[in-house]
Every structure is written in C-alpha cells, then in structure tokens.
C-alpha cells in the first residue's frame, strides 16, 4: 500500500507530472479542442468528471480482478468502463446543453480514446493507491488537464491576432507553443516531495 500524503498526490498529478505536458497523455483533445477558451473549459470539466468516475470504478475492478485472480482482464474491463462512462456523459450533455454538444463534436465520443483517462486508471493501480488516494489522484490529473487546456486555449486565441509565417501555421505552431508550456511546467519540478 502506498502511503503518499494526499496533498502531495494532488500537486504531483496537477502540476509536476502534468498529464498533458509531462506524460503526453491526452494530446489529441489538447490539440483538437484548444482553439476556443469556452469550449476548452467545458471539455476539461467533462474529462475531469469521466476521470473521477472511471478512477473510482477502476479501483473496484482492480480489487475484484485480484480477488478472482484474473489480472490479464484488467485492460479490457477498464476500457469497457470508460466507454460506458463516456456514453453517459454524452447523453447528459446532449440533454442539458445541445450547443455545447455541437461545439465539442467528435471530440466528445473520443474521450473514450483519450489516453489520459486509461492512463490514469493504469497508473493508479500500478502505484497501488488506496481509495481516497485514487480519487485525489483523479481530481489532480483532471485539474491539471483542464489547466493545460485553458492555458493553451488562451494562448491560441491571442495567436489568432498575431502574424505568423505561412509555413508554421496550423499544427506546427501549436506544437511549438505546447513545447514552451512544457518547459514552463518543468519549473514546478522542485515543488513536490517525490517524483
């Protein structure tokens, strides 16, 4: 059992080992929906919610799989849980806010294939986190993802007005910005007690 204190887990997942900028998880939505600030915020919150639910489920599944002694089913059961959670969120958003539903478009069902969520479930079982630790870890990772997405969206909205050379337009300039953000986040490395 891992004895890491909760605050350290949160800071670690959110800032030091930010899922997007240090682990490269969830790059597709990070590049795909970060063009507008409002969409980015809501996308971040949706991902955070899915993370929270799937992390809780993953904790239960892991315990169950250990009990029936079938660890090779881990990956398959995790992805099935995530896919159903995403389906749930999708129906919820469609009902509550059709505008948001259209704005997120294809990226909403693609949360299923957002590696940040599966990654979270795998990391927490690898690290042997307990129940409370898992939830805090999911919250931290979700907050970190939202933070990175919002920062990126803010920068890209400013970039619309800037004059960029033709060659770097599109993905290339976005990646360069992401690289710079990643360098900035390296500055947080001294914060936590452990990596």
């Amino acid at each position: 059992m891992n004895q890491e204190p909760l605050w350290s887990i949160f800071i670690n997942a959110c800032l030091i080992n930010n899922f997007v900028l240090a682990y490269f998880l969830g790059i597709c939505p990070f590049l795909g929906v970060s063009a507008k600030l409002a969409t980015a915020t809501r996308m971040g919150l949706a991902v955070m919610f899915v993370m929270l639910v799937s992390s809780t489920c993953a904790y239960g599944i892991q315990a169950l799989l250990l009990w029936i002694d079938a660890p090779y089913l881990k990956l398959i059961s995790f992805i099935a849980v995530i896919a159903s959670t995403v389906q749930l969120v999708e129906m919820f958003i469609k009902k509550m806010s059709p505008t948001l539903f259209r704005a997120l478009g294809i990226f909403l069902p693609l949360i299923t294939t957002n590696c940040a969520i599966l990654g979270l479930a795998l990391f927490q079982t690898n690290k042997g986190y307990g129940f409370a630790q898992s939830i805090i870890y999911a919250l931290g990772a979700g907050a970190g993802f939202t933070l990175a997405l919002i920062l990126m969206a803010g920068l890209r909205e400013k970039l619309e007005l800037a004059r960029t050379p033709d060659v770097v337009k599109g993905t290339a300039i976005t990646l360069i910005i992401a690289g710079l953000l990643s360098v900035c986040f390296m500055g947080f490395a001294g914060l936590g007690s452990s990596q």
Binding site: L21, A22, Y23, F24, V167, V168, K169, G170, T171, A172, I173, L175, I176, A178, G179, L180, S182, V183, M186
Partner: peptide
C-alpha cells in the same frame, strides 16, 4: 525531456509544410 518531443515533432511538421 518532454518539451523536446513537442519541439522535434514541430520541426518535422515544419519540414513537411515547407
């Protein structure tokens, strides 16, 4: 380091765009 990944990929994409 992680940042290098972004820069390298950006570099390759630049080359292709160019």
């Amino acid at each position: 380091l992680p940042a290098g990944g972004f820069f390298t990929l950006a570099g390759w994409l630049l080359l292709f765009n160019w």
